[in-house]
Write a protein that binds this DNA or RNA. Structure first.
Lengths: 214, 214
DNA sequence: TTTCATCTTGACCATACGGTCAGGAAGTGA
DNA sequence: TCACTTCCTGACCGTATGGTCAAGATGAAA
């Protein structure tokens, strides 16, 4: 009767099994890699956190490095998506303001991924160097062109777009990468909703004034 | 004859031996910890880079963690010294401008130390948490007071001093911690003297305008 | 039911690592 | 020269790690 239908629902399908296990492993790996670094992370710890035996990890991800690469690619794609505000914005206030909002939100929701990326770059980008030289370089040049156009149109002062981008990346990601330090200076308490809103407002205000957009 | 004098000069004194070996080990350790992380660094690699047998490292530094702690403390003290411009400055242009100059210089001269610090904080500051809660907290509160005074005196707009400091730390250290990424976006070439000067000028210009100090 | 591909897992292995130690070399002060 | 401290180092050890494998369990298709 309805029992059959229930069982066939509860019993996971093949594709679901694969998807759910890969998701659990990637989530656990992101956290462990962020907190211990690539060298300090162990497959055993990731397995425990994902609730799977270690040998099962190697069934889905051949090596530790494969797993790590997937984690790094993930945060990179999330950041690329966040840049859509650049494209269809009339000026720097909307474009850069929206970009800052998006990056700050990501720093709050994906602090582990941000840390893994930072660690990877700090170590000389051994596994994602090709990304830097292709996707990131193209992306950066595209946004530099947009910023240059805004300058030409008189919508902001003539600042070096490169150093502006570096400042944006540095400042927004700082709230994820150095979140522990910020928390310590905040009386050992994580920033609450109001404080995050103030942080976003402060960053936007200082940056947009700094480039003469407001 | 003069041979004796030469020999007695060439033959290193006890204190020199200790000082020089500790220096060689610390320099090598700073680089290896920065490039591989604490977990990825090996005592063997540090020993090779310092030109000493591994057992000798353990003669000067009991454990890997002891060595690591010394490296982290080093960069922290360098940064503290850089903040002197804050104290005897009439206003934000000189105070913050000098601080940015100093931090940017350190990012160029001590990129490894900066990375080690970043890595340590990202991993939750397991070995320098007490520093964060004492020295750094006190230091930060002191500078916040200075910034507040400047605001009261009308020398800059009323911005949140905390987020201003975070922006300064993030931006200046970005040129060290993400130096590899910056280099990649610079055509795989390190920033030259002129580009470093431009970077400093850009950062100072954007920040000081952002807070209404110029 | 039968057949097949996918998934699971405990046990195992070779390697590399941090750290130890004993015994000798070298500098130092009397 | 002698006694003493500091410095040096090859050899060694226990442990933990990434990765393998073979045998079995489970779901899917016929």
């Amino acid at each position: 009767m309805s029992g059959d239908a229930q069982i066939s629902r509860l019993r996971p399908r093949r594709t679901d099994i694969r998807r759910e296990n890969e998701r659990a492993i990637l989530d656990a790996a992101e956290k462990v890699f962020a907190e211990a670094g690539f060298g300090g992370a162990t497959m055993q710890l990731i397995a425990d956190m994902a609730g799977l035996p270690k040998a099962n990890l190697h069934y889905y991800f051949a090596t530790k490095e494969d797993l790590y690469r997937r984690v790094v690619q993930q945060i990179f794609e999330i950041w690329l998506d966040a840049a859509s505000s650049f494209d269809d914005a009339p000026g720097p206030v909307e474009g850069l303001g929206g970009y800052i909002d998006a990056k700050m939100d990501i720093s709050r929701t994906h602090p582990y991924g941000s840390k893994v990326w930072a660690s990877e770059v700090m170590h000389g980008a051994p596994v994602i160097q090709d990304y830097l030289e292709t996707t990131l370089r193209d992306w950066t040049n595209g946004r530099i062109a947009v910023i240059q156009r805004w300058i030409t149109e008189g919508k902001m002062r003539p600042v070096d777009p490169r150093h502006l981008l570096y400042m944006l990346w540095a400042t927004t990601q700082h709230y994820a990468d150095f979140g522990h330090q910020i928390q310590t200076l905040n009386g050992d308490k994580p920033l609450n909703d109001r404080q995050w809103a103030e942080a976003k407002a402060s960053v936007k205000d200082m940056v947009l004034r700094g480039i003469g957009a407001i």
